[in-house]
Design a protein around this nucleic acid. Structure first.
Lengths: 103, 103
DNA sequence: TTATAAGGTTTGCAGTACAAACTGGTTTGC
DNA sequence: GCAAACCAGTTTGTACTGCAAACCTTATAA
């Protein structure tokens, strides 16, 4: 792949992945098997509402799986990447890397 | 800086820089003294209208300088990073790098 | 003189991110 | 026992933004 392609690919980066908060969420999930809602909330430092809506979008896009269960009597939500999600995020970082290295 | 900070910083990535097309434009400008409109158009592969509006935003944000002149009788527009722009883009890539390395 | 092209700018709309309000349930205090 | 506070998220409203398409101005071609 030559440099020109690198630049053209950037314009088509998946926004679902690229949006900063979601990139942080997804990247965090790359480093573990699963995480819960509260862990992510603390990690990326956004409001519950926004985290919730970002997670819904990632789920709709097939990048993550949302598992709702209980820990004792309290609801708890676990998040993990799907196989497709893992590959997509990896590819996304690869494109960004290529762009950066083009400088 | 510890890992937790890395994740929190991501949410605050400057959108002006992070948007894919603009990240491509800015990164291209990092690699040269100046570029013209047509060169960027060809490089990132978007429509003239969208390139124009992205450039306006980057100019308003003080990241680039837009110089309009003529080449013979035809109008031509040159773009270059401001010193502030150069530093901001460099910092942006640094934050992305930190995130990626956190995996 | 009309038409086509160069080099952009402006407009209209569809989609999105965020803060704030809300829901459903649990625990605490009195 | 029951009101108030808390927990774990979801939904809503709005202001913003990216994109395609339409438009503008001047220059060259037929």
């Amino acid at each position: 792949m030559d440099k020109l392609d690198t630049f053209k690919k950037i314009g088509k980066l998946e926004k679902l992945i690229h949006e900063p908060s979601r990139l942080a969420i997804l990247t965090a999930l790359m480093g573990c098997q699963q995480a819960d809602f509260q862990f992510l909330l603390n990690l990326v430092g956004m409001t519950k509402g926004n985290l919730s809506s970002h997670l819904s979008k990632l789920e709709s896009g097939g990048l993550i799986v949302v598992e709702k269960t209980y820990l004792g009597k309290r609801p708890i939500t676990y998040l993990s990447l799907t196989e497709h999600g893992r590959k997509s995020v990896s590819k996304h970082w690869q494109i960004l890397d290529d762009l950066r290295k083009s400088i």
